[in-house]
């Protein structure tokens, strides 16, 4: 059923309510294989919520969300939706890597153990294979010598690079980045963005929520400006950043650039 033309992520009129508060009010967008999509917008615009819907950390209230052609979190049969058993939802999430603003590394495990945990426990990979792969990943993110350090002994930038390696260890087909550099000291932002750029160059499909406009301009294939739970403007980053069509985009950009 795999066709190269099928988008990796397809969102159709995605809505998300928290009780009376509606955060997403019909987001429609698609991300092709190998593409990097950067989501920007003021705080509270629903960027993070949208990201969390993609791997079903939040359940969508209305609309449809597909990852690699599969409906996220539900099974559709004869026009009716069935809630997915937890086991199946977990299986879907394996293929989607996520990197958090506050890293969320496991503090009781070393950098290496953080990376091997999910492959060994979830995918039942042999321990020595997982360890070998973890060492390769640590080298990729430039932290070979920190394999045995605990997260508390690493700087924020180093922790976030370990977190990226941890997500990559599951060999995801899609990576989600939720403000990966927002909690970092300014001089540490570059090292994390560097790893992400390399990843994009290698052809990883990525959705990145960030305030780093330089990164967006350089790496993104498409830039989406989200405000009030809807897509206000989207297009190639040069166009959106250079000559925004919408007044709300202009207003936002004037504040962050």
């Amino acid at each position: 059923m795999t066709s190269p033309a099928r988008p990796m992520v397809q969102a159709q009129q995605v809505c998300k309510d928290f009780g009376a508060l509606s955060v997403l009010k019909g987001v429609t967008l698609s991300v092709d294989r190998g593409q990097v999509l950067v989501l920007v917008g003021p705080s509270g615009s629903g960027k993070s919520t949208f990201l969390r819907c993609i791997n079903h950390l939040e359940a969508v209230s209305a609309g449809r969300l597909y990852v690699d052609g599969d409906l996220v979190g539900y099974r559709e049969s004869h026009g009716k939706l069935y809630e997915m058993p937890a086991r199946d939802a977990a299986r879907q999430r394996r293929d989607v890597g996520m990197v958090f603003q506050h890293f969320n590394l496991f503090p009781h495990r070393t950098a290496l153990e953080n990376i091997t945990e999910a492959p060994v426990q979830v995918k039942r990979t042999k321990k020595f294979l997982a360890t070998k792969r973890a060492r390769d990943l640590l080298e990729q993110v430039g932290l070979s010598e920190k394999a045995d350090a605990y997260p508390a002994q690493l700087s924020g930038g180093q922790q976030q690079r370990v977190a990226i390696a941890r997500a990559l260890a599951m060999e995801p087909k899609l990576m989600l980045f939720d403000e990966p550099t927002s909690a970092l000291d300014p001089e540490l932002v570059g090292e994390v963005l560097g790893v992400m750029k390399k990843l994009a160059a290698e052809g990883m499909t990525m959705i990145v929520v960030t305030h780093e406009m330089g990164f967006a301009r350089e790496v993104a294939d498409e830039l989406v400006f989200l405000d009030g739970g809807v897509v206000v403007e989207s297009g190639p980053p040069r166009q959106v950043l250079g000559s925004p069509r919408h007044s709300r985009t202009r207003e936002f950009l004037s504040k962050v650039m």
Binding site: N55, L57, A86, R87, A90, R91, R93, R94, V96, G97, M98, F100, H102, N104, L105, F106, E117, A118, Q121, V122, A163, R166, A167, M170
Partner: peptide
């Protein structure tokens, strides 16, 4: 912290795991 649960869930771990 809740982030620990989220990170594990995002890695495809079950609730019990």
């Amino acid at each position: 912290p809740e982030g620990q649960l989220e990170a594990s869930t995002a890695l495809g771990m079950s609730w019990w795991m």
